[in-house]
Computed example of a mutant assay.
Amino acid sequence: MAAPNEAGNKKKSSYELMSAETKAMQDDASLNPAMFWVAEGESLWQSKAGSKNIACASCHGDAKKSMRGVATQYPKMVKGKLQTLEGQINQCRSGAQGSPALAYESKELLAITAYIALQSKGMPIAVRETSANKAELEKGRHSFNERMGQLNLSCAQCHEDRAGLKLGGSPIPQGHPNAYPIYRLEWQTLGSLQRRLRNCMSGVRAQQFEYGSPEMAQLELFLMWRAKGMLLEAPGVRP
């Protein structure tokens, strides 16, 4: 099964569609608002927590070494379950630290995710189809191509069939997830890929997948597989 755009149109990050000013915000750490979350994530990495009173660093050491390349591999199968990066962070919290799971879109979960993702910035997305994830990948592919909502549109109709055209005066991107979590100027805060997917579902007036649901993980898996080889930009900035 070949990835879309692999043999035809070149995979293009939505970074290439942004203004010079917005690109500069992403490129310069002193201008990128997401770096406030990264700094918080670095602090949380070192902070002991939970009933076991241990930190992320207690197990994983220096994130700049131990987390390099990690974000390029998620979602992936972990002990027979498809796990997103956020899901794995929460699994470590509950299992290793004895801490409650962090809420999706909470400052803390976004901060740790952004800090981990930063360690893989500039590395190619490495998600591949395997015998272990094939069924989950197919479900994500189905979600991407299935029409949904009152507008009866699929992800593919916008981000493949109409990519490069304009909607409301703005170019339609190919819909690659290579910059998440992102600081979106429209949101005025950092947000996850799942938040963006839920925005799209709301836009076509469809029932949104729940945060942390298997359906979200499957769709994330397909999108990361579809973007394999693209360089990770996280944490990105978008309009």
Results as ranks from 00 to 15, higher is better:
161 D>T: 09
134 K>V: 05
140 G>Y: 02
131 S>C: 04
149 G>K: 02
137 L>M: 10
140 G>C: 04
140 G>L: 02
169 G>F: 11
159 H>P: 01
130 T>F: 02
153 L>E: 04
136 E>Y: 09
158 C>I: 08
136 E>K: 13
156 A>F: 12
162 R>M: 14
163 A>F: 04
143 S>V: 02
134 K>E: 07
131 S>F: 14
145 N>Y: 13
135 A>Y: 02
165 L>M: 11
144 F>E: 04
156 A>W: 05
131 S>I: 12
150 Q>Y: 10
158 C>S: 08
155 C>R: 00
152 N>I: 04
163 A>H: 03
135 A>V: 09
137 L>A: 04
132 A>G: 01
146 E>N: 06
139 K>D: 08
156 A>R: 15
137 L>Q: 05
139 K>V: 06
169 G>L: 11
158 C>M: 08
130 T>L: 03
140 G>N: 03
164 G>Y: 13
161 D>Q: 12
167 L>M: 14
151 L>A: 15
132 A>V: 04
138 E>R: 08
138 E>L: 13
143 S>R: 05
134 K>T: 08
132 A>S: 11
165 L>K: 09
133 N>G: 08
141 R>E: 09
149 G>D: 07
136 E>G: 00
132 A>K: 08
148 M>L: 13
139 K>M: 08
157 Q>F: 07
148 M>A: 15
157 Q>N: 07
148 M>W: 11
147 R>C: 03
167 L>E: 11
145 N>V: 02
162 R>Q: 14
133 N>A: 10
167 L>F: 13
136 E>F: 12
153 L>M: 13
148 M>K: 15
142 H>K: 12
132 A>H: 05
133 N>C: 10
157 Q>R: 06
138 E>H: 06
162 R>N: 13
141 R>V: 01
154 S>Q: 10
133 N>M: 09
132 A>T: 10
136 E>H: 08
144 F>W: 15
142 H>W: 02
147 R>M: 07
150 Q>V: 13
139 K>Q: 14
132 A>M: 05
130 T>P: 00
153 L>G: 00
139 K>S: 10
162 R>E: 08
134 K>W: 03
143 S>A: 15
160 E>Y: 13
141 R>I: 00
158 C>G: 05
157 Q>K: 08
136 E>I: 00
131 S>L: 15
155 C>T: 03
169 G>Y: 11
130 T>D: 02
161 D>V: 06
129 E>L: 07
135 A>T: 12
161 D>H: 08
168 G>I: 06
152 N>Y: 06
134 K>C: 01
142 H>F: 05
151 L>D: 14
161 D>W: 05
167 L>W: 07
152 N>V: 07
158 C>P: 03
156 A>L: 11
131 S>D: 15
160 E>V: 15
141 R>S: 05
168 G>C: 05
156 A>K: 15
142 H>D: 04
147 R>L: 06
148 M>R: 15
147 R>W: 01
166 K>I: 00
129 E>I: 03
156 A>D: 12
157 Q>W: 03
160 E>I: 15
146 E>T: 12
152 N>E: 13
156 A>I: 10
139 K>I: 06
141 R>D: 03
129 E>R: 12
160 E>S: 12
132 A>W: 01
146 E>P: 00
152 N>Q: 14
150 Q>I: 10
141 R>G: 00
169 G>T: 09
147 R>Y: 04
